[in-house]
Amino acid sequence: MRFRSTRGASPEVDFETAILTGLAPDSGLYLPVEWPSFSNATLASWTDLSYQEVAARVIEPFAEGFVDLDELESLLAAAYEGFGNREIAPIVDLGDLHVMELFWGPTLAFKDFGLQMLASMVDVALQRHDRRATVVGATSGDTGSAAIEAFRDRDQVDVVILYPHGRVSEVQRRQMTTVQSQNVHAVAVDGTFDDCQDLLKRLLADQTARQAFSLTTTNSINFGRLAPQIAYYIWAVLKVGRGVSFAVPSGNFGNVFSG
């Protein structure tokens, strides 16, 4: 599948390039040129599959030419091995309301779904080309924790997370700053989350720095993080039924956009 920048000034790229680049050179977001669709018959055939098997089939069209279905299933099995519930995204029936639990990942955030898989896919791409990359991100708390947990101890990746000093929860601060991994760098910024985002955007806009350090990003501007999150919306439809409406209690647009 090909991906195009939302600003239209960068060449189209494949999935591997999109996840390794994160943000397009023109500062646009990489999105698919064409969005895949799944027929009712296809969805019906997925009803008895595990979460990882469903997720692999959702991601497969996006990752065409990068990894095949069997490889995706293996990557997803490894990525979600540390989740605390075998169903990965269990759905609780409350009568007229169903609640999908997205907190069973290692940092208790829904972002574990995207970042654990993104880290695995970035690893595959870097190993193929014998490259090293620096993954950068800005966080108000949970993105940083999830990114650090996903990328820690990976041989070909350094991860640098910017967070606002004194403006994240103590649990999240400890999740980011007590990791004993040589490739993890949590940086406290004297300012707000918006200041962290501005620093990140300026860094990614510097093409010299991007090439010198092989920069990519963990934030939801990276489609490699969004693609795995699409899967839990499909999972909910399979378990609850078609015609379901979603209410997303989150301030993160990446969570909503993936649905």
Score class of each variant (00 low, 15 high):
residue 2 R to Q: 14
residue 4 R to M: 11
residue 4 R to E: 14
residue 5 S to Y: 05
residue 6 T to N: 08
residue 10 S to P: 10
residue 17 T to F: 05
residue 17 T to C: 02
residue 18 A to I: 02
residue 23 L to W: 06
residue 24 A to Y: 09
residue 26 D to N: 10
residue 26 D to E: 10
residue 32 P to K: 03
residue 33 V to N: 03
residue 35 W to C: 02
residue 36 P to E: 09
residue 41 A to Q: 14
residue 44 A to I: 01
residue 44 A to W: 01
residue 44 A to Y: 04
residue 50 S to L: 01
residue 50 S to D: 04
residue 54 V to R: 04
residue 57 R to H: 08
residue 57 R to Y: 05
residue 58 V to F: 05
residue 58 V to L: 06
residue 58 V to H: 06
residue 63 A to E: 04
residue 64 E to Y: 09
residue 65 G to H: 07
residue 69 L to C: 02
residue 73 E to L: 01
residue 74 S to R: 14
residue 79 A to M: 07
residue 81 E to Y: 11
residue 82 G to V: 01
residue 86 R to Y: 08
residue 89 A to G: 00
residue 95 G to P: 05
residue 96 D to L: 09
residue 97 L to Q: 09
residue 97 L to Y: 11
residue 98 H to L: 00
residue 107 T to Y: 09
residue 108 L to A: 14
residue 112 D to P: 08
residue 113 F to I: 15
residue 113 F to M: 15
residue 113 F to P: 01
residue 122 V to N: 05
residue 125 A to R: 03
residue 128 R to C: 03
residue 129 H to Y: 04
residue 130 D to M: 06
residue 130 D to E: 13
residue 131 R to N: 05
residue 132 R to Q: 12
residue 135 V to G: 00
residue 137 G to D: 02
residue 140 S to C: 12
residue 141 G to C: 00
residue 143 T to K: 01
residue 143 T to V: 07
residue 150 A to I: 11
residue 154 R to W: 03
residue 160 V to Y: 01
residue 161 I to R: 07
residue 165 H to R: 14
residue 172 Q to P: 08
residue 175 Q to H: 12
residue 175 Q to M: 12
residue 176 M to E: 03
residue 178 T to G: 03
residue 179 V to H: 10
residue 189 V to G: 00
residue 190 D to M: 00
residue 191 G to A: 01
residue 192 T to W: 02
residue 196 C to E: 00
residue 198 D to E: 14
residue 201 K to A: 12
residue 204 L to V: 06
residue 205 A to C: 08
residue 208 T to W: 04
residue 211 Q to T: 13
residue 216 T to C: 08
residue 217 T to I: 13
residue 220 S to Y: 11
residue 222 N to P: 10
residue 225 R to G: 13
residue 225 R to K: 12
residue 227 A to N: 10
residue 229 Q to C: 11
residue 230 I to T: 14
residue 231 A to Q: 06
residue 231 A to F: 04
residue 241 G to V: 10
residue 245 S to R: 15
residue 245 S to K: 14
residue 248 V to E: 12
residue 249 P to M: 07
residue 249 P to A: 09
residue 250 S to C: 08
residue 250 S to P: 08
residue 251 G to E: 07
residue 252 N to F: 08
residue 253 F to Y: 13
residue 254 G to F: 09
residue 256 V to G: 07
residue 256 V to Q: 13
residue 257 F to Y: 10
